[in-house]
Nucleic acid binder design. Structure first.
Lengths: 213, 213
DNA sequence: CGGGGCCTTGATGCTGTTCAAATAGAGTGG
DNA sequence: CCACTCTATTTGAACAGCATCAAGGCCCCG
């Protein structure tokens, strides 16, 4: 709650708080695991501040980032009994945790509706992600990524809470390719970086054209 | 209903039929469109016989196959008001079509449950597909594909209802790469093709090892 | 038996990876 | 506040995997 830069979303709106009455409030530091791959999925989470990534690890160390979550987002909702992905805090963050089944039978409908919405949203985003991974070039992937992040982060200057490695594992590329594409987009004047983790979109239309899909 | 080879799933089990009482029965021929991209998603469908693909077309002609559907599968359930993908029959097929909202208020709960299950299944499959597209090599993709199809098609000899182009657009590869990988897997004795559209898995364990993810 | 699409195979090229090293940046303790 | 250290990021050069381009063969169907 202290320094401005530790709260990348000072202007985030977080409606729907009322449904989370009785939820436990948890805080995590950068890199801490919120839940693990293959862990039982009892709890669902609502991000209050900070940012979170979900990851899937293969045996040989390859990693796929499932998604990035921002304040107001619900995460940890699964279609099975276990978490398919793990979730880690990208920086200091606060979440509300609610037991999925049991307990609050006083208004199961409300919880169900919340789970339904989270699942629908998850499906929509996963479909978009799939399209990006399947048939887009490195340049298109990065352009789309910058636009997507900017859309979630209202504000002139956009902060990237994730590392280049996270971006690479999200887009199915390497950090070197990410870096080169960002460099190219900046050289062409489509975006402007101030440090490695902050940028401003200069020509949204041109960036949209590049993003294609 | 006539020739054996026009029914690639003679042994398919199709439970859950009772929930589809009152649904319209439709038939399609090879290549026919069941619903279009961006079309209103009033109806949900249950595949009775044949096989179906869902596709997403980009402006420049690139195509991503969303999934393949087999008898018993429900398709056309969307999180929004419109179909994000189109659906086409891979060969002659029959489907049951049910209006999603309205009408059968006599048992909305049953319909809701069906939609929930279909959405959950869709999410699970889309997540797997995403993992395959993001961090797998061409060889791994093809190996995983052959295993997945074989699992859905119970039987010693597996039929491929889709073309090489469909497989390529599902896996984010080209038909040439598909062909080469199939050739390699066959040369190594992991699978055996009888014609281009039928195969038998020779060494399931070795194929699983290759599929990794 | 012949036509035509589908599939395979080969040669070449490009996109993105890998390996390696330099630079920038953030965090820490003095 | 500054110097130092350690990590994250950038940049460069060589390489690899998959795409592209171009024939050629197979198979299904009429």
């Amino acid at each position: 709650m202290s320094l401005a830069h530790s709260h990348p979303f000072p202007n985030a709106v977080t409606p729907g708080h009322e449904d989370w009455a009785g939820a436990a409030r948890l805080t995590f530091r950068a890199g801490e695991e919120i839940y693990a791959q293959d862990e039982s999925a009892d709890l669902i989470y609502r991000l209050v501040s900070g940012a979170v990534r979900t990851s899937y690890l293969l045996a040989d160390g390859r990693r796929q980032i499932g998604d990035f979550y921002y304040p107001g987002d619900v995460l940890g909702v699964e279609t099975g009994a276990l978490h398919r992905f793990s979730a880690e805090a990208l920086g200091p963050c606060e979440v509300l945790a609610l037991r999925r089944s049991g307990s609050a039978a006083y208004d199961a409908g409300r919880l169900d509706r919340m789970i339904w919405q989270a699942t629908a949203s998850e499906l929509q985003r996963t479909q978009s992600h799939m399209l990006l991974l399947g048939r887009a070039t490195a340049c298109e992937k990065v352009a789309r990524f910058l636009l997507d992040i900017a859309e979630r982060f209202r504000g002139e200057i956009v902060a990237l809470p994730m590392s280049r490695q996270d971006m690479a594992d999200y887009l199915g590329l390497t950090i070197e390719t990410i870096s080169r594409m960002l460099g190219r987009l900046q050289a062409e004047g489509l975006v402007e970086f101030v440090g490695a983790r902050r940028y401003r979109i200069r020509r949204p239309g041109a960036l949209e054209d590049l993003a294609a899909a």
